[in-house]
Design a protein around this nucleic acid. Structure first.
Lengths: 230, 230
DNA sequence: ACTTTTATTTCGCCG
DNA sequence: CGGCGAAGTAAAAGT
């Protein structure tokens, strides 16, 4: 992360973007942030997302047209052009920031929790493999055996399960059926389901298991506490 | 859009987020933008995405701890806390911005182009309905008939088609099969496909038709040119 | 208000 | 480097 200056232009401008799509924005007062890594953001007075932007590594040119500043940020396939219609204010900040950003309770954390405590899925569940590549279909979160020794595919979601999630899991079931000649059970573990997902599940024998990121965090903390004794 | 002030704090701070997940960020110099709609952004010196944020409508409190400013931005389930470790610089910008943001060549535009010139899908294609609701499955982009009078489901994508897209289209085929007792043809029109999507298509009789947003834009321009004569 | 879909998604991982 | 799935996705559109 290290350090770098951030330049802010504040003033009235028009914005044109040509690239993956095309956009036009008429005259209005905005903030333009340009960072040392040559990422650029155009912010309107509302909305937490920039109206236009260009990711890091763009080529940034500062031009003048009719005595007013113009910023061109371009890469191989995209062009962002910001034309000021009056002299903008200009500020420069030198920022030093070497801190590490840490995030917890991701879907990855949910998987760690299930591997640490498989009964989160159901009593007697035994994980065999994680992230198994299923032929021509994709990757399964966890593959394991249930208490009766039957193959189980587990899909983890940190948000309410959608019909999409159910279809994806069904596709895994079909592929594994082809591969092993036996239909595995399918368990979708998520904090909840949407109604449409429920309907999709009724059609496809996918089972639902309620599992929240919060519960997984608890398990991980307990597991970590145990680790410190080993 | 109208107008509103934007407040920028610049200075060293720590950031804590608790909500859908949990994050921690140690001391470093950052920019904090607060807009009139009470959206809030924390920007590090690099990266075009904010490291932490809170969407519009958050409750924002300005506090003081040990003589230094603390910003708390919270909503029902989430809390963002920014604690400065030295006096930050403070700037306020009053921005007036009423311009309309216009974006072209979206998936919607692709649909308009196909309706204006159905042969983009294939010669003899005749659209019947757009955005048809399919029972318990979702909405189909375009439903029509091919040159031989067979039912055709068309799905449009402005980006390379994924296995996800193929599965979704297959689900439509199944639903329409149940509904009409006849299996429709399925055409996925996109600028390209991923390899995995190709494999998925081989399994499911979904056909691919190359169609780029750029070509659609041309057609729309032509159609617009025609319109001006009518 | 809730669900579903889209996105110039961005980001990270893995082949 | 491309493909693929996740994201505190966010925001828009439909129900």
């Amino acid at each position: 992360m290290a350090k770098g200056s951030v330049i802010i232009f504040a003033g009235p401008c028009t914005v044109v973007y040509e690239g993956r799509a095309t956009s036009r924005l008429g005259v209005g007062e905005r903030l333009v942030l340009i960072k040392k890594d040559r990422s650029i953001l155009v912010h309107r007075p509302t909305g937490h997302e920039p109206v236009n932007w260009q990711p890091a590594g763009s080529m940034i040119d500062f031009l003048t047209e009719n005595g007013l500043p113009v910023i061109r940020a371009s890469n191989a396939n995209e062009l962002l052009k910001i034309s000021f219609t009056a002299q903008p204010s200009l500020m420069v900040f030198d920022l030093r920031d070497t801190a590490e950003f840490e995030m917890y309770a991701s879907e990855e954390d949910m998987k760690k929790a299930v591997l640490a405590k498989p009964s989160l899925v159901e009593p007697g569940f035994k994980p065999l493999e994680e992230e198994r590549q299923v032929k021509r279909t994709g990757r399964v979160d966890i593959l394991g055996l249930d208490a009766l020794g039957r193959l189980v595919v587990v899909e983890l979601k940190r948000k309410p399960a959608t019909p999409e999630d159910v279809r994806q899991l069904s596709a895994y079931v079909e592929s594994l059926n082809s591969e092993f000649g036996r239909k595995p059970r399918a368990i979708l573990a998520a904090p909840s389901t949407t109604k449409a997902a429920r309907r999709e599940m009724e059609k496809t024998s996918v089972e639902f298991r309620c599992l929240t990121p919060r519960r997984c965090m608890q398990v991980l903390r307990e597991a970590k506490g145990l680790d410190s004794y080993l």
